[in-house]
């Protein structure tokens, strides 16, 4: 049984990595949000499996919280936003997707190297997935750098938080509940503020392209 759940967790972790790469190359805003929702869903699923196999009751709560917040609420807010902003069908022009993917692969190798010494110290059944968690954090970071649309940057930001959450579950079976609740509150408030920003930026610049936001430079 333990080996089966262990395999299942590894499988879900692999899916998360796949989604991180898919997000990196996804041009449609709407599909990006769907991918983000799937990421949240798989995160909740893998947390549930960990909770089941290790008998950690508090992990069920955090799995539930993840499901509600990251698989439904945040994607729903983002979805509402892009409808209100009328950018549902926007397609972003991205240059050099193959190069970005290659850089992404290099980041994954780097993440696994960085995680190796910590994984060896961990005694959780999930320790092998720590490398994947760090890789998804770095891939989201890369996504924020390569994107020029505000919404895509925010999705990258939230995906990074997902990666960190996954890291916390793989290394330690989750942070203390009070901290997790605090983080969830911050993420939720942050998403609302991003939403307000989208409208302010749109109102001022007539577009949500971050290129408009590169005027303040040292001269």
């Amino acid at each position: 049984m333990a080996t089966f759940t262990g395999q299942l967790i590894n499988f879900l972790a692999a899916l998360l990595l796949l989604i991180a790469f898919a997000m990196l190359s996804q041009r449609r805003i709407l599909s990006l949000i769907h991918l983000f929702a799937w990421q949240g869903f798989i995160l909740a699923l893998s947390t549930t499996v960990v909770a089941y196999s290790t008998h950690q009751p508090h992990l069920y709560y955090s799995a539930f919280l993840t499901l509600v917040l990251k698989a439904f609420l945040l994607p729903w807010i983002l979805h509402r936003l892009i409808i209100r902003l009328n950018i549902k069908w926007d397609v972003e022009t991205m240059i050099n997707v193959p190069t970005t993917m290659l850089v992404g692969i290099a980041l994954v190798i780097f993440a696994f190297n960085l995680a190796a010494p910590i994984s060896q110290l961990a005694d959780t059944i999930t320790r092998s997935t720590l490398g994947i968690a760090m890789a998804s954090v770095l891939l989201s970071f890369l996504m924020m750098i390569t994107r020029h649309k505000a919404v895509a940057q925010v999705v990258g930001f939230l995906a990074m938080e997902n990666g960190l959450f996954f890291a916390a579950t793989s290394a330690t079976y989750g942070m203390p509940m009070v901290v997790e609740l605090g983080i969830a509150l911050d993420v939720l408030v942050g998403t609302f503020i991003f939403g307000i920003f989208f409208f302010q930026i749109r109102e001022t610049f007539d577009s949500l392209d971050i290129k408009n936001l590169e005027k303040l430079k040292e001269d």
């Binding site: 505000a150 990074m160 901290v179 001022t204 610049f205």
Partner: peptide, 26 residues
């Protein structure tokens, strides 16, 4: 426009920065 840019930069850079601190805390 300048204040929006400043706020956006502040939010994204500090958000990404503080995410590193979360990993440190983990």
């Amino acid at each position: 426009p300048a204040s929006l840019e400043a706020a956006w930069k502040y939010f994204i850079l500090c958000g990404v920065g503080i995410a590193q601190a979360l990993f440190g805390t983990i």
